[in-house]
Amino acid sequence: MSASTIVTLPLNQSLDLQVSDRLRKKASRHMKERVIEFLLFGAALISVFTTLAIVYVLVSESWVFFQHVPLKDFLFDTQWTPLFDDAHYGIMVLLSGTLTSSAVALMVALPLGTIIAVYLSEFAPFKVREISKPFLELLGGVPTIVYGYFALVFLTPLLQKIYPDLPGFNLLSAGLVMGVMIIPYVASLSEDAMRAVPMSLREGSYAMGATRLQTSLRVVVPAATSGIASAYILGISRAVGETMILAVAAGMQPNLTFNPADSGATITSYIVQVALGDLPHGSIGYQTIFAAGLTLMLMTLMFNLLGYWLRKRFREVY
């Protein structure tokens, strides 16, 4: 026992002496690594600051707004005339435009997007899929101002041939084009969700003698529910937040209506309208756009929370 300790101790010590210089953490290298990590962390934090800044700007400006306008008026007044002498601030008017145009858009985008997703994921031959996916991406990349121009100068005149009473600015045409714009988002995300369903589930279904459609609708779509729900939520957020198509093609007159054949302003197009004018910083008109923005933000937040809930509720267990 004691002999062995006598032998090994000096050996360990001498080894220690030999290598310690080389193995010791170099302070300079260590510092450099820490500084770099800190910088990268700072970059990642920018996103958190962005969110905080959005909340801060919207809430602080809206706070001033609500000092002047009671919340009750904001929610229940049926007129939106903040720039008139007889000012009314009923957000319902702008909400009606937003909801109507979004409803039209979603009635186009959700069914068509889902059908395209099922078709591309389960039915389409490889070639068709390979061509369609990038094409959908291109479709999603077209600037919305261009879609707005298209709605105004192409689709509206076309619709007026069928329905001559349609005004030159209307929510219908804007909503329809917006729907086409949203199709790629819904289709692409839903398709990703469906393709993530393991092949073994499909094989299980086909082995029972199911057809493609039966397998798609009864096994693949239910298995991909949470992903499809996310796609829908994204589609809804896009519709509610879309601005230029409506600013160009739907007119910007505030109008409490749920009739898509009317013209109308939305929350977003109102913000654009005010920004185009020359409102002094700090005026009540200037603050209305932040109150409108806050409403929009709360709506998208609500949809996102709904999305989280749906994802949790329908999380895939394969």
């Binding site: 700007v57 919207l58 601005t243 977003t268 929009l296 998208t300």
Partner: peptide
């Protein structure tokens, strides 16, 4: 998922 116009409001204020 934040609408682009909200970024505009952020930039206007900030």
């Amino acid at each position: 998922g934040v609408p682009s116009i909200v970024y505009g409001l952020l930039a206007l204020g900030l």
